[in-house]
Amino acid sequence: MDKFTTTYSQLLTRWHTLTAHRFFWPVFILAGLLFSIAAARLEILDQYVQLILIYVGINIILTVSLNLINGYMGEFSVGHAGFMAIGAYIASILTVSVFPQASVNFLFPVAILTGGIGAALIGFLVAIPSFKTRGDYLAIVTLAFGMIVKSCLENIDAVGGPRGFLGMDKLTTLPWVFFWTVLSVWVIRNLVYSKFGRGVLSIREDEIAASLMSVNTRQVKIIAFVVSSFFAGIAGGLFAHALQFINPRMFDILKSTDILIMVYLGGIASIAGSILGAIIYTILLEILRPMGVWRMVLMPLMLVLLMIYRPRGIMGLREAKMFVPLRDLILVKILRQKKKEATDASA
């Protein structure tokens, strides 16, 4: 046991020193991309494992993007599945009905991107009520938004109404999911460590004080909602082309609840937490699959226990160092040095 813990802590220090070097990132991403291509082409992983990894990736995108609103901004959005639905339907319509069948493989990223942009436009509209209402009332706005999306889709016969829409090729492959996941994590992490990200945080902490300290809260809210819904739309497009079948009920309140659980399981305002939350939740659900219905009894029970003993989730308000920009990490060091120089100069 003792030996195990020392090896574990050694491994952990290794990991920390490894990730502290910033070339770690390009290398890691390249390796991941190569592995995902190899896994898909050479069938290193069987189809089932690949599918689970695809879901893990999609869930990471959903969780990180929702965390922007619910964790960093401190609002309570319950309509994330609605944005996902918009992305899923737009991308599916494009690949099935609009793009020529021959070049579908080639145009797949365009379809996904268009889905994301469509969702982002709607996200812009949802941001507007957030100027005036907060908290529970904004929760209702997003809830109503989710319901409206679902019931609109159910009433459009061209996309199959309540029966759903099918005919997509299985275009969502492991490399694509890896690419989009890395992109979404990277972009949202960039946003968080910019002036807009700090604006988002200041809205969570004290919106009035923020606006009095020159933060343009409307601009910040629009950016947060647009980015968050954009990536929900991307995830929706990937989801549709992994499952090859979508219907409005897949994107109802239960789906939004799933994403909420991953966000709060991993911990609010933490990218590392969101990634962890998505991985743990997705994989745990798969591991517990033999339990049948009872796994859905056990999961919520575990969530409740987690909330009672760790109300902020696994990583709540903490961030893994590897996601923090170097500048923020060494700022204090620079600061001390400057101070020393100043005292030296005066002496």
């Binding site: 002036k195 700090r198 604006g199 945080l201 200041s202 902490e205 004290d206 004080a209 923020a210 300290m213 020159s214 933060v215 343009n216 308000l317 700022l331 204090v332």
Partner: peptide, 16 residues
């Protein structure tokens, strides 16, 4: 103040 944020971030936010 933005209580859960660092002292530095409190000031940096004001430079928005």
């Amino acid at each position: 103040l933005f209580k859960e944020l660092t002292v530095l971030d409190n000031v940096r936010i004001a430079y928005y």
